[in-house]
Nucleic acid binder design. Structure first.
Lengths: 139, 139
DNA sequence: TAATCAAATTTTAATGATTACAAATTTAAA
DNA sequence: TTTAAATTTGTAATCATTAAAATTTGATTA
């Protein structure tokens, strides 16, 4: 996605598109790797040597608050971020650590039991071993 | 559940039923409140003044390893535990903090996309406001 | 009963992610 | 150009969890 589009996306969500914010959102949108704050920091600090980790945290918190990104908690003590805010699932491979996006048949996903509940977020994820790692385990 | 049953449950899972382990598992089974390690510690230390928090952590880790309990991660930095190891969902109320168990229609819950994946764990949870808090908000 | 040994528990200290806070810098408006 | 507000930075603090070593417990055997 071009920088222009990223700026627009930020503006649409009421966020002033500063240099760092554009960089961080671009990272999320391009890599689609559900990174931790630290992964983002480690990558961007190469380009922006003055970058502070606090800025990464501040920015991510702002993104979540303004609905530009969502938090994914699959493993304890490992907060990850995703700029795909649509309802979708995840699969984390315990072997290689990769997190896959899973398209869900969202019809009938909300249990009747929750009829009287106000649902703000839905999360579905799986853990196990991905096909690539299963294959490797055989050889 | 009587102590005898709890002891049996531990033995069935290859865990020597020590006093502390029985207490901690009983807590999980009776309260069904998806507690954090600290919640368990704060409650049990009243009865067992010498109890150490490390013991609670050690025990919970053992339970997870031996499949007596599962970890529930809904909010970041808040690891919770559940002795109900069956496939079921959760709802956490952002207002009162309570975590509800949700029975799921498990049929067709696994997406076709994961056919070639080996799935070890499935997690489904929702966040929002529970009926009780919705009602309170009106008055 | 006493001695022995492994398992369980405790204590203390370390780690690592995240946040708090104040200072410095940048941006944008007047 | 000046000034206020927003953003970013740096440092220190916090909190959950784990690591490592010491101690206790409890079962087993001599």
């Amino acid at each position: 996605m071009q920088q222009k589009k990223v700026e627009q996306l930020l503006k649409q969500h009421d966020i002033k598109p500063s240099y760092h914010r554009i960089k961080i959102l671009s990272y999320l949108l391009e890599k689609k790797n559900h990174p931790t704050a630290d992964m983002i920091y480690q990558e961007l600090v190469k380009e922006i040597p003055t970058l502070s980790k606090t800025t990464v945290y501040n920015t991510l918190n702002l993104f979540v608050e303004k609905n530009v990104a969502i938090i994914i908690t699959i493993d304890e003590n490992e907060t990850r971020y995703d700029a795909d805010i649509s309802l979708h699932g995840h699969f984390k491979c315990s072997s290689c650590g990769k997190i896959y996006d899973i398209r869900l048949n969202t019809a009938g996903i909300i249990p009747d039991e929750l009829e009287k509940f106000q649902i703000d977020e839905s999360h579905i994820y799986f853990k196990g071993t991905c096909p690539l790692c299963l294959k490797k385990a055989l050889s």
